[in-house]
């Protein structure tokens, strides 16, 4: 990581794959904890999978890409911030410092943004498929 200018194409591809796998682990954590234990309890998602057909599939996909993916992005980034915080502690940084305070604020902001984006997704699903409710 210290010699980023010496990274060639194969090692760049390897880094991309490693970053994707690490992101997959964060995503898995979001799926098994944040989503069912907080988001779905605070704002339950309607079960509209049975209403999806070839006519409204694009609308569903649009909701996933424009809202749901952002909800997971914010949550995944929040867990990465936690890792950054833990990494800083391991390297000897002081627990109560301005940088850690900023990391804590960013963490709260990201989780709140994830919840807001989740409510957008749920409202989108309800409004798009409300004719079929």
């Amino acid at each position: 990581m210290k010699n980023l200018d010496k990274i060639n194409v194969p090692s760049g591809v390897a880094l991309l794959i490693a970053a994707t796998l690490a992101g997959g682990v964060l995503e898995a954590f979001t799926r098994i904890t944040w989503e069912p234990l907080w988001l779905n309890r605070k704002c339950p998602i309607p079960n509209i999978l049975g209403k999806i057909d070839t006519k409204n599939l694009d609308l569903y996909e649009r909701g996933v890409q424009s809202s749901y993916k952002y909800a997971t992005f914010y949550a995944n980034f929040a867990w990465a911030i936690v890792l950054l915080f833990v990494g800083r502690l391991f390297t000897g940084a002081a627990l109560f410092s301005m940088a850690n305070l900023i990391l804590g604020l960013v963490f709260m902001l990201l989780l709140d943004a994830s919840y807001v984006q989740w409510t957008y997704f749920v409202n989108y699903l309800k409004r798009v498929f409300e004719k079929e409710w």
Partner: peptide
């Protein structure tokens, strides 16, 4: 949602 947090 996956690659950027994973990179961090």
């Amino acid at each position: 949602s996956t690659l950027l947090p994973g990179a961090l």
